[in-house]
């Protein structure tokens, strides 16, 4: 067999994706797949050694991402990816710890952990696939569901004010925030790369279609139609005020990099305070002493 033929057997992302677990469970034209592909490319682009990357997820469609990446990957409980990732990061600061989470997992049941991780500026990269609905459990309303979308628990239209996750996290203190749709493949990959390289709490929101539930219940066509709609109706505004980027039902979506600021991480603050108070007595301890560089030192 020629070298050229061998190469065709290999997918370029085989090194990052767990091909022995394919086919995946996601519906056709769901947006999660493209987001995962962007992530895989971004990881490669950062040149962070793959052995040093850990992915943590909770429950839901996006929660299954951990199972498809060929990295140390932890599929935990509903909403709890962030505290698990926090422990992982603090135990081994050399790791690049990434949380993959859906909007419900992250901002409803996991909402308390989300705001506190951002407040602490915990050195994590959080990727949120926001499809405005609970997919895994059959299309219920989420804290992000816009008025007056139809879901299985708002059969007459959603009426609660939804979260604008960008505004929420900006107020809490995240270091980096961006939003794209799942069809902005190149820009999404760029933002993920930046987020992965940014010390502190970085947050990338990917607006994605739920083809089977959100699109169908709201008669929005196929998943691909909806993905295209989001893309075509987005308006790039880098540096937009996060307070102004609410998302309304089937309206234009403001995308771009909203926040990129320098704030010390939890570990840096912890070390600085103990150095100030204890001086030489403070014993900075990386629980795992693997000889690698400490990424946030």
């Amino acid at each position: 067999m020629s070298d050229a033929m061998k190469r065709t057997d290999q997918h370029p992302l085989d090194d990052i994706l767990r091909s022995d677990r394919l086919p995946h469970i996601w519906c056709a034209t769901c947006g999660i797949g493209t987001v995962v592909k962007c992530f895989a490319e971004a990881i490669q682009r950062t040149e962070i050694p793959l052995d040093d990357v850990a992915v943590v997820s909770g429950i839901g469609c996006t929660g299954r991402v951990a199972g498809y990446v060929k990295l140390d990957s932890y599929h935990t409980t509903h909403g709890r990816a962030i505290p698990f990732a926090t422990g992982l990061k603090l135990a081994n600061p050399r790791l690049k710890v990434v949380v993959f989470s859906g909007d419900g997992d992250l901002s409803a049941i996991g909402g308390n952990h989300l705001i506190h991780a951002a407040r602490r500026n915990m050195d994590l990269t959080v990727i949120c696939v926001n499809n405005f609905i609970y997919g895994m459990t059959g299309g219920q309303a989420a804290p992000t569901t816009p008025n007056t979308a139809n879901t299985s628990t708002t059969p007459f239209g959603a009426f609660e004010p939804p979260f604008n996750l960008q505004k929420l996290l900006e107020a809490c203190g995240a270091s980096y925030q961006a939003r794209w749709t799942s069809l902005h493949v190149r820009r999404l990959t760029n933002s993920m790369t930046e987020a992965l390289l940014k010390p502190g709490f970085s947050f990338v929101e990917a607006i994605a279609p739920c083809s089977t539930l959100y699109a169908r219940r709201n008669r929005l066509g196929s998943g691909f139609d909806l993905m295209k709609f989001y893309h075509d109706n987005s308006e790039i505004q880098h540096g937009a005020d996060p307070r102004e980027v609410d998302i309304s039902f089937q309206d234009s979506i403001i995308v771009g990099k909203f926040i990129d600021r320098e704030r010390p991480t939890w570990q840096q603050l912890n070390d600085a305070q103990h150095n100030r108070s204890l001086g030489e007595k403070y014993f900075r301890h990386d629980i795992v002493e693997a000889g690698g560089e400490v990424s946030d030192a």
Binding site: T76, T77, P83, F84, T86, G87, L88, K89, L90, A91
Partner: peptide, 12 residues
């Protein structure tokens, strides 16, 4: 408790 689990898998 969840951070404890993460820390253990991180080596603590």
């Amino acid at each position: 408790i969840t951070a404890v689990l993460g820390a253990v898998w991180g080596g603590a």
